[in-house]
């Protein structure tokens, strides 16, 4: 019995190690995204010494500690962190049911829908635990005709930042976050947080995207203008919300951004037309002056 147990232990450990190695090596696996390494990130930020001597001296402790952090990240932290995404995705099919027009259909398939919800949830948890799936976002009803399409963002997506840049990316993230929060509070900190596009792209994630959306909806006018100007300069293509400044609710913002950006930006037709047809006569006139080939 003891011999069998002894024989089994190494083979089980090897199987676990091999599985973890394979999972972490998969290009699309969840662990490739630094966002999904919460414990490891925290470990690296707080427990790994910076000076060379201390760094090498601490290696006998930090290497096993780091490996343990990876295992806990993969097995516990990440799977638990995606449960709400999987739940949101699985239960989305219960939204917008037509109980009036399709009563018998909705009532009849509700047991099937319930069973499918369970399958979808379990599959979603397993899939999200293993693969790097973008966070679930509830489908929103289509907004204004000039609304910019959103896309899921993840840290390091645009710049291809590797693990060695993590600390730098963390600092950039913190700097941008502080600045965005100061804009929302109405007391913008002086200057701009960061102007290097690759660093901004590496740091940009769902949290910063959420804050930037709050700036656009909650911040005072001057803070919004500061944000739009910065985003035009610093956010890489695909992330920038430059023309949102031109479709801001406040005519003063639209007019200011039009003057600042009209000659530096190729506008989509729908944004250009919306400005030409603007309800505010000043914005409409500015658009006519700046966006059309009048003589």
């Amino acid at each position: 019995m003891t011999t069998t147990a002894r024989r089994r232990r190494p083979s089980l450990a090897c199987a676990v190690a091999l599985t973890l190695s394979l999972l972490t090596a998969l290009p699309g696996c969840a662990f490739q995204n630094p966002d999904n390494r919460r414990l490891w990130n925290a470990f690296e930020e707080n427990l790994v010494p910076e000076s060379d001597t201390a760094f090498y001296c601490a290696l006998p402790l930090t290497i096993p500690g780091g490996l343990l952090a990876i295992v806990i990240d993969v097995v516990v932290v990440h799977p638990f962190s995606i449960v709400d995404d999987a739940w949101g995705e699985a239960t989305e099919q219960w939204d917008d049911l037509d109980w009036q027009g399709e009563y018998w259909y909705e009532a009849g398939v509700s047991p099937l829908r319930g069973a499918w919800t369970v399958v979808h949830f379990v599959g979603g948890v397993i899939g999200r635990a293993i693969f790097d799936v973008p966070a679930f976002q509830k489908a929103e009803p289509s907004g204004s005709p000039v609304a910019e399409p959103k896309r899921p963002l993840k840290v390091g997506e645009a710049s291809g930042a590797d693990d060695s840049d993590l600390r730098e990316v963390g600092a950039a993230h913190k700097s941008i976050k502080t600045w965005l929060l100061s804009l929302i509070s109405g007391a913008p900190s002086p200057g701009q947080p960061l102007t290097e596009k690759p660093k901004v792209a590496a740091a940009w994630d769902d949290e910063l995207q959420g804050l930037s959306e709050r700036v656009q909806s909650e911040a005072p006018i001057r803070a919004r203008i500061a944000y739009y100007t910065w985003s035009f300069e610093c956010l890489p293509p695909g992330y920038e919300s430059t023309w949102l400044g031109l479709t801001d609710d406040d005519a003063r913002v639209r007019a200011t951004m039009l003057v600042l950006l009209a000659k530096r930006l190729s506008l989509p037709d729908h944004v250009r037309q919306a400005l030409l047809d603007d309800d505010d006569p000043i914005v409409a006139e500015l658009a006519w002056q700046l966006l059309t080939d009048h003589d």
Binding site: W104, Y105, G108
Partner: peptide
Amino acid sequence: NEHVVPESTAGRWALSPVAMPVGLATY
């Protein structure tokens, strides 16, 4: 759906014990 749907929400709830099996069978 065309001919047998209670107007009120309460009516639809009341009918649901019948509507579920019948709806599923009809499906």
